[in-house]
Design a protein around this nucleic acid. Sequence first.
DNA 1: CGAGGCCTTGAGCCGGCTCAAGTTCGGTGG
DNA 2: CCACCGAACTTGAGCCGGCTCAAGGCCTCG
Lengths: 234, 234
Amino acid sequence: MEQCSKSGASAHFCAICDIRSKSICAEMTDEEIRIISRTMAHHAVSEGQALITQGEICEYLYVVISGSYRLVTLLPDGRRQITGFVFPGDFLGAGATGESPVTAEALEPGLVCRFSQDFLAEMSQRHPGIKDRLLSRAETELTRARTHIVVLGKQTAEEKVLSFLQLMEQARRGRDRATGRIYLPMARQDIADYLGLRLETLSRTLAALKKAGTLASVSGRFVEMGERFEIVTG
Amino acid sequence: MEQCSKSGASAHFCAICDIRSKSICAEMTDEEIRIISRTMAHHAVSEGQALITQGEICEYLYVVISGSYRLVTLLPDGRRQITGFVFPGDFLGAGATGESPVTAEALEPGLVCRFSQDFLAEMSQRHPGIKDRLLSRAETELTRARTHIVVLGKQTAEEKVLSFLQLMEQARRGRDRATGRIYLPMARQDIADYLGLRLETLSRTLAALKKAGTLASVSGRFVEMGERFEIVTG
DNA sequence: CGAGGCCTTGAGCCGGCTCAAGTTCGGTGG
DNA sequence: CCACCGAACTTGAGCCGGCTCAAGGCCTCG
């Protein structure tokens, strides 16, 4: 399924990787980077492709270079909860011993770096800094999850939608300019399943926010913030 | 506020600590344990006491020896969400750089071991195994949080209550026998705030479960499972 | 035995859900 | 280029699970 985009010039991809400085590879020596570049450099991921599957052991850790991904948990009866979205710089499958509680699916074509868990374990013995990276990543994941819990547990439909838009704005920051225009890489159903709302409720809530002037426009996957947005979200 | 229960026989407390084998201290040498025992052995915590406060930097990591604790997040308007409960063997304040997103309060008198973050950082340089402990702890925390997200996002009031009871049963397992009788160390309001329900709805749901025979009895903080319990929870 | 938490119960309401059309849009083939 | 199709999204009408407001019961502690 996966296409491998490694090239003859083995260190090339890592050299130009704009994620590298933020990621586990920052800890490694040039020689090691060369090895990595040869064996596991950027893999292309196609839309809809699952990198991790719920209930399966995940053999690899992925560092996201580009694209966005959804973390899906299915209940036995078919209900679907999205536990998070993943963006460039994030990891997929970090510290996942045992069966994965989620499926990770690409929302759009993207690139990832793939490390086998065994290789990573070995590597992190020699470079304890890698463990620090993993720890700090785990910490931010946990903070995100806690925020999500508060949103799901205590907020109304309108507040949920605004929280989500804020999150998307932050996730994209540094890539797009802060133009107040947000591109949503996921379908409405994904957003609804993330927020614990029904599709129809989400749609109606977006319409209401537009009508109220909090959002300037809502057109398919593009949303523009309105005048009131900053005020309402605090 | 905190009483320190260290004694003259400095290594004593660690020697009899039944958490030690599961915790970061398992990695340390006898000499180091002696130092720890002298400087930071078991602190008594009183009911209601906050070990970590939302919005403040937390200087310490606590290893829970006994007692149970709630993690509370307050919204600006006073709404309260409980993001989790903490039991013996768990950590409080792990990997918390920056302001804590939660307050950790004791539900009952208990004991904790306190490590300053600085000391821990230094210690974990010498003993990389400590980082592994922290990582594996972070992983289970994250898994719990994800489970919580699914409960909040997709489950009905009845399912939420059953999920909670299952969680409490598991948390206590190995301490009480699996008698099908659960002691709940927290108030109804705490449970409601954990499950994203109103106090009244929780109370009514418990009454309904008892009436249906899923629960044999519900009396204050004691709940007994009924015949149907295993069937219903799957 | 009275006061004050904490928990339960009751009655009515409402936000978000359900079911059911309708609309928009990108893709595909004629 | 348009006609058609299916998927994604929006909109409408009515309903219901959980919320609100309010009262009452039951402990514990003074």
